[in-house]
Amino acid sequence: MSCAQKERVVDSLYGELSDVARAEFDAHVATCDSCRKELEVFGRARALVRPMLDQAAPASAMQRLRAEIQKQPSKTRWWSLPWLLPALSTAGLALLLLVMRTTLLKPHPLVRMESSPEPLQVSVPVVPAAKPEAPKVAQTAPPERQRQPTTVGDIEGADKLDNFADGKRGKKEKAQHWADPPKSPASFADMDSRTKKIAQSVPLEFPHTTGAELSKHALDVDELKELGLSEGLKADRAPVTTPAPAMAQPPLPSENQLVEKASRAFADGKWQEARALYRELLLRFPAHRSAPMWKQRIAQADVQLRSPPTLADEPTGGGGAGGWARPAKKARTVDAEKNQLQNVPSKK
């Protein structure tokens, strides 16, 4: 005779009854010998089977598995590497510290403006901290000034450029300085002793003006460009990356030396030498206030040498252009006309 609750023995044995069903079945088992004995026998059988089902596995399967995994191409991704976590942590901490240092130590812009005006200068990094000194700025002068003779006026201008360097004058004043340079003194004799000394020490040309040195004063050159005064600078500007070394050229004789030599030669009757010296003076300093006197002396030397006039192409007031191409019989007439124009008594 089988019990109707026998189907529940297996569920009860493996704990698959609900609490209510289990309570009911337990109450039934208390009264049903059949179910109770079956539970006991099944339980004893399970207890006997269990040790047989708890044996250790052979190592061969895991070894095979590891070998098969080793054969597979590596799919390990960079973000799953073991070093990634500490590395990212360190990098993140460093970044955090950097951000904190930047944000915490940096004053507020308004506070900075009120506290001191210096940060405003720092905010313009293109401008060099130190303005070029006066002689160097003079080296960056427009080419027309370099072609002109160096006079005491340049030295005076250098004094003014110091003011530029100090920021005491504006761009317009600087541009005016370059466009209309100060006039030089009437003569070497008009200079005071200090100015004479400085004038003698300053070379007439600036052979050491190279592109590299110009690049040091990039601000001034750029400003000059803006003002339209940089013509000719390009020719002097060498590539910045390969600055040419300053060439050591022998300094040309100064104006004073030339004038002195020319005067001495003229006084000594060395017409050829005096003529050449005055001609050089005229070529180098055509706007000099003594230029008319130099022309007269050249003409006098020409007369003395009885040579054809060499200043046909010089601005002599209009007279004898192309005169020395004329026939020889008319040369004397031409000389007389020239001498008359230049208020030089012609030698008969």
């Binding site: 708890d54 895991m62 995994i69």
Partner: peptide, 17 residues
């Protein structure tokens, strides 16, 4: 690959039996 080895270690004994 280590993850699969660890997983199979968990079930190795039961699978064997």
């Amino acid at each position: 690959g280590q993850a699969l080895c660890l997983l199979m270690q968990r079930y190795e004994k039961r699978l064997w039996n």
